Amino acid sequence: MKVTPSQLVQLLCAFVPKRLPVLITGRPGIGKSDIVDQAAKATAHNLLISHPVVEDPTDSKGLPFPSPDGSVARFLPFGDLERALNATSPLLWFLDDFGQASPAVQAAKMQLLLARRIGEHVLPDCVTFVAATNRRNDNAGVTGILDPVISRFATVVELEPTIVDWTDWAVANNVPPALVAFLRFRPDLLSVQKTSRDIENSPSPRSWGFVAQTMGVVPKELELISYAGAVGEAAAGELMSFLGIYRELPSPDAILLSPDTASIPETPAALYAVSTALAAHSTEGNFDRVLTYNDRLIDAGHREFAAVLARDAVRRTPELQNTHAFIRAQGGPLGQIIRGQ
């Protein structure tokens, strides 16, 4: 069953407190680990991240240690197992890249996942399991997960990234407006299934995150090289074309100097660029001017872009909802758009 990032967060927040284990599948770089971290924080759980792919089966059982007289031996827990067994507050034990682990390591987790014990050691009630894996067709070294292991999870879901969830995250994390505007314009490039085994990157939420980190850092003459190394040449070429449009548009400051007369773009690419940039520049001091320009977008028939501008601005700076300009706008066409009327 496919889920969006926002649905997965809700699902984990419901399952984790009830100690119900969840298995998440999906292509590489789409945010599985970040969402688990978000859910751990939302449910007030400490997060323990394990990588079974680098484990041996003994890691899940402990090391045998003889008694002083050598007559008997016990398995002594160590590492992540020891931390989980000694947990006294809510702990989310995250098994990352689980599908890359050997069958022996996967089998060693079965008793922990279902019986919540290993040998004589019993997990405390405050520990919950979540696991994540790429799919077999993702060229990620996944050979599969044993069926008896899969059946020990309360539910198995496949994460599918969406442009709505990604832009919500991007706006909240101050991703450069130019990149947000581009991916709104070309949402099909947010996550692209890699079809070759060549040593190159493909577009994914993770790789676009690397692009965001390098924007404004690399000199312009190296932008294409840098971006192509992160998301591939085709996607990087489209981004560079979009940036050419973005950089030729009037600056947000220039628009806000004359919001009653500033030009309104005609092409979707330019409209995405302007609305996203204005949202990023919105403050309590200039929001009345932003909304003046936004009203003109509505009058020009660009209701979708007016909604993008208003929602992004409020998402970035929630205090804008309390401004007189925004309260007044709620009674007009913008309020109808936001309410979906």
Rank of each mutant, 00 (worst) to 15 (best):
V3F: 12
T4C: 09
V9K: 14
L23T: 11
G26K: 05
K32C: 06
D34Q: 14
I35V: 13
A40V: 01
K41R: 15
H45K: 03
D59G: 00
P64C: 03
T88N: 06
L91C: 06
F98Q: 02
F98N: 00
A108M: 04
M110W: 01
M110K: 00
A115Q: 10
H121V: 00
D125G: 04
V130K: 01
T143K: 15
L146Y: 02
L146R: 05
I150F: 03
W166G: 05
D168I: 14
L183G: 08
L183M: 07
F185V: 04
L190C: 12
S191D: 15
V192G: 07
T195S: 13
D198F: 09
I199D: 12
S204G: 06
R206V: 09
P219A: 03
P219N: 04
L224M: 15
Y227A: 02
A230Q: 15
G232W: 01
E233L: 15
G244Q: 12
G244I: 06
S251M: 06
L257W: 03
L257A: 12
T261I: 09
A270K: 05
A277S: 08
A279R: 03
S282A: 14
G285M: 09
L291Y: 01
L291M: 05
R303H: 15
E304Q: 15
F305Q: 09
L309R: 02
A310G: 11
L320D: 04
F326H: 08
L334W: 05
I337P: 06
Q341T: 13
